[in-house]
Amino acid sequence: MTPEQQTAVEGLLRSHAAAPGGLLPLLHAVQDQLGYLPPAAVPLIASAFNRTRAEIEGVISFYHDFHTEPPARHTLRLCRAEACQCMGGEALAAQLRDSLGLPDEGVSADGELGLIPVYCLGACACAPALELDGRLHARVTPDKLRQLLQGLKGGEGAC
């Protein structure tokens, strides 16, 4: 953890540690600011919350949202739930596999794009759906996905 990261974590701990059940809001705040949860932050968090390191790591590992590694430059969350499966969502997954060599979950070879499966983005009436760098896209066709990926390569991104 860099000194800047440590200062950020300590600042967030001061504003969250006293709130009842404040651990999840704290973890979200750290991840929002740093992009991930540095493992070296765990002892600081444990001490501020008066809980063991094992407990903090247990919480971090339980939730799909929390990551202990820095994310790729772009994050694509593809919905793999039933409604999207029924509308061609699996074809989009196959397209990512074929074009970028990305399995269901992972980072592209150039380290630019991280793929994460999600189960429902609430856009089921306009399936299939995905979220690219926090922005929701629905009625996604293979063409649309290609354009979105192309947009990322342009440097500007569709975000």
Partner: peptide
């Protein structure tokens, strides 16, 4: 309060645990 991507937290007791920071 924001969840963290766990479907099970829609179960009420699991949701309460999560709200408590567990």
């Amino acid at each position: 309060r924001e969840g963290a991507g766990a479907y099970i937290c829609g179960e009420e007791t699991s949701l309460l645990e999560s709200l408590e920071g567990k």
